[in-house]
Design a protein around this nucleic acid. Structure first.
Lengths: 155, 155
DNA sequence: ATCTCATTCATACTTTAGGATGATTTTTAA
DNA sequence: TTAAAAATCATCCTAAAGTATGAATGAGAT
């Protein structure tokens, strides 16, 4: 049986919880046997689980990307010396396949045509495009094309 | 005396902590007096403080942002040298309005947005675009954009 | 080894785009 | 001034694009 990555994560967190509870019991035992004050035990517990909460929150929140556009004047005329902006492509995290799809999209192909061109299903193309839109921070294919051309992601 | 917003936040959090510890003591009292199981008390505490941790993390961390600095190259000679292909525009019989629509289309606007931009109805925009497609001999807006840029109808 | 990421595909659904057709109102040029 | 072109808008319909969610798998990285 296969587990989705989300389910696996859940299981990991559950196990982590279990381990922490074990730790809790151990601390409890130590303190009670040693007859230390209950307050110290409570404080330790509180700190422990507060930290756990912070950790979980930090792990689970996704970073929000803000794009700052700096205009840099360049005196170039031709598309002959086109050099893809590798740095930006890396920064945006565009995969090989996504770039291919973007390229074909910019050439005016429909999703159906792209899928036939790459020998994959229409759904796959849609998935790639959805991810592209989110990575490029756009809502439509025409916006994606505009953006990708202006920032030299594609020719 | 003035308090900076950071100091005020700190105070709020301290107070929140105090209140929570109070709550903790109360729960502890309830459980101990009522002679409930210690495990339930511990679980409640753990959950409480895990939640607290999550809340603190979400509140306190400035929204995790990965800032992408995009160096947009502004090709001066390109924009300066651009001369619309008037001959072709005449040959194709493109009207002023159609060119405007084409321009906005290439900038990534949706039909709705174009209509708002030009203060006409959505239907009007569709009509213009239909004529454009037939005149440019294309089937989709992405093709129209490709074609219009390649043949210097628009920038 | 195991975890992450890229790639693939599916289903179900909503929204937008595009096509066909007809009609009214301005402009514009003969 | 009147015919032609341009611009406007509508309705009905179909096709394509886009969203959301879940899932399977193979390749690399740790």
């Amino acid at each position: 049986m296969m587990l989705s990555s989300k389910n696996r994560q859940l299981i990991y967190y559950s196990v982590a919880f279990a381990v922490l509870f074990g730790l809790l019991k151990w601390i409890e035992y130590q303190f009670l046997v040693a007859n230390y004050s209950f307050e110290i035990y409570a404080s330790a517990t509180a700190l422990l689980f507060t930290s756990l909460g912070i950790w979980i929150a930090l792990k689970l929140t996704k970073p929000k990307t803000t794009t700052i556009i700096l205009e840099k004047n360049k005196f170039l005329s031709n598309s002959n010396n086109f050099k893809p902006n590798e740095k930006l492509i890396l920064q945006l995290g565009l995969s090989k396949r996504e770039l291919e799809v973007l390229q074909l999209m910019a050439q005016g192909l429909s999703n159906q045509e792209i899928s036939e061109n790459l020998f994959v299903s229409l759904n796959t193309v849609k998935t790639h495009i959805s991810r592209l839109f989110s990575k490029l921070n756009v809502k439509r294919r025409t916006q994606a094309i505009e953006m990708a051309k202006k920032s030299a992601i594609i020719l």
